[in-house]
Design a protein around this nucleic acid. Structure first.
Lengths: 221, 221
DNA sequence: CGATGCGCTATACGCGCGTATAGCTTATTG
DNA sequence: CAATAAGCTATACGCGCGTATAGCGCATCG
């Protein structure tokens, strides 16, 4: 292993190891065209031969695994920056970064395909949302909930679900341009969201009270 | 054409024309395994040879088109029954019907894949929701909105998005068992939904008022 | 009765895919 | 220097896919 021998293997971001370029090309291809992207397309984007994928990764599945790891690493790294914002805000900011675009698109694809990355992303998002709403309740800006965990799951599911729906429906919103699509979605849903969050939807409490009577045991938080 | 000659071509539901059995098998395969289901699987499920697909439909794409038409026909037919319910309720009821299960799963797949069926389904859903909320506002059960159309879009996007997210994440919820998965989702999100719809989320109106100031022209409804 | 035509099957073609193999080039190592 | 090993390419294999072709059985009809 000449790496251990101290050779100048650490290159600049534009001149990575072929292995890393291959991994990054795969992330971009998967993000743009889904996980059915062919190894030939990936190797072409990386500017190498297709055989090199097998040489370095053995299998397309293994390449996918390493892409998952890299994407999660970037996500965790980026998450550190946005500690003081709500999860929604930090996601919105990240998605605007051109550099982060493919990574974010990869995550969304993984959510849509039930992949491991998507699963972990969702769990983190729910946990962050629960923590953030708890802070906001203590700070007096959000109303308390009878089941804060369920509310966090609801908020993530409805918001992220609406986002994913946008990408499947909007023809301009392929996963290549995550940022603009999110901006468009935010502006089109901002008013109803604020209305609902501020004033609610139902005129009286009868439905809620009825439910609370039927379900005498909210999870006792 | 012996059909015109009056031959007894109208058979019972269990003994359809091979063409119709092929179409129904395709709907089931597409619903269960996605639109990548192979023509060989489809013809096997219908109990005929694969060549028959080409004979009757020419092309897999054309088969897909006829499946789309049939699914939309069933959807429109079923929608007629649920006129007095909210779109959410009628969808919930339909999804419980075993008979309608594959059709509904097909629709959801089409939404996820940006197909024509999904598009039309969404449009109908939004229109129905807008009409229903308008009625409810007049009846005094729902609060009025500054932009009823946007609110209908928001309600559909968040609700349906959460549903689709459930299917991609929940391992038990493959699109074969739509009914149980929807029941599970409804029970897990019922409390936070009712809380939000009844009491809102934000303690004060500052965010909403700020937004209303910045955007001086709500679409003038 | 032939002939026509439709429903249907069996089989094959061509293509793109993931994977496998053989070998070339280059640099490190004893 | 010779040997070794790693990075990398070129090419091929096998498979499943959508599609195409040829032909069989059989009812309808002149």
């Amino acid at each position: 292993m000449h790496i251990a021998a101290g050779a100048p293997w650490v290159r600049s971001a534009d001149d990575l190891t072929a292995r890393a370029r291959l991994r990054d090309a795969a992330i971009e291809c998967f993000a743009q065209h889904g996980f059915d992207a062919s190894v030939r397309d990936i190797s072409a984007r990386a500017g190498v031969s297709q055989g090199l994928i097998r040489h370095h990764f053995g299998t397309k599945d293994q390449l996918r695994v390493e892409c998952d790891e890299e994407v999660l690493r970037r996500y965790r790294e980026a998450k550190g920056d946005g500690l003081r914002m709500s999860p929604g805000q930090s996601i919105g900011m990240l998605s605007q970064l051109d550099e982060f675009g493919p990574t974010f698109a990869y995550i969304l694809r993984s959510v849509l395909n039930g992949g491991a990355v998507g699963r972990e992303f969702l769990e983190h998002l729910i946990a962050d949302t629960e923590a953030f709403t708890e802070d906001a309740v203590r700070a007096g800006t959000l109303k308390p909930s009878r089941d804060p965990a369920a509310r966090a799951r609801y908020l993530v599911a409805s918001t992220l679900g609406a986002l994913l729906l946008q990408f499947t429906v909007d023809p301009d919103a392929d996963l290549a341009n995550v940022g603009p699509a999110m901006t468009r979605l935010a502006s089109s849903l901002a008013l109803p969201t604020l209305e609902l969050y501020t004033e609610g939807l139902l005129v009286d409490r009868s439905m809620l009270d009825e439910y609370l009577l039927q379900m005498p045991d909210p999870p006792a938080r």
